[in-house]
């Protein structure tokens, strides 16, 4: 029985998808921004409640509209991580409809919302501005809460096993 799960990172460009996955998989962070073209694939094996899980993580290139993301990259996804940048309003202004699109088209997939770059913002002001619940506030730069997103995803998957 294979316990491999496909996790897809989605969100606008520059929100820190690659930084989050690199921090999680390799525990590194760099300030030089290199735009992702197409997709990068990472792998991480974890243990949640004595269960071994393999995450194959698809870090997709950023798109300002979720409907522009290549459908073939989203198929077969077990868990989506929708990431926004709280310092740029345009990355979360449509969060409700974008998350809605993922939920209606991929109803079996789990979804977590993440606000990255939390080290750069006033959290209270951001919470007043955003119209959708955010599951995790992370900083790929400091590593805050990054691992927790994937652990939570692992726990959600385990419930279905």
């Amino acid at each position: 029985m294979i316990n491999s799960k496909k996790i897809v990172l989605v969100g606008h460009f520059g929100v820190g998808k690659t930084s989050i996955v690199r921090r999680y998989v390799s525990n590194i962070f760099t300030t030089d921004y290199k735009v992702t073209i197409g997709v990068h694939i990472f792998k991480k094996e974890i243990e949640v409640n004595n269960n071994k899980l393999t995450f194959v993580i698809w870090d997709l290139e950023g798109k300002d509209d979720i409907e522009k993301v290549r459908v073939s990259h989203l198929l077969g996804t077990s868990g989506f991580i929708y990431i926004v940048d709280p310092t740029r309003n345009t990355t979360y202004v449509n969060i409700e409809s974008e998350v809605g699109y993922l939920k209606s088209n991929y109803p079996k997939a789990k979804l977590l919302t993440v606000a990255n770059k939390v080290d750069l913002i006033d959290k209270e002001a951001f919470l007043k501005d955003v119209s959708f619940p955010i599951d995790f506030f992370t900083s790929a730069k400091t590593g805050d809460n990054v691992e927790e997103i994937f652990n939570k995803m692992g726990l959600i998957f385990l419930k279905d096993l």
Binding site: I2, S4, K5, K6, I41, K43, V56, W58, G76
Partner: peptide, 22 residues
């Protein structure tokens, strides 16, 4: 999903099979 179901290799490969499949 691009997840690897099974793999057989005659040579010892260094690259991760799950990532190749993806």
């Amino acid at each position: 999903s691009g997840l690897l179901i099974a793999n057989v290799s005659k040579d010892e490969e260094n690259i991760d099979k799950d990532m190749i499949a993806g």
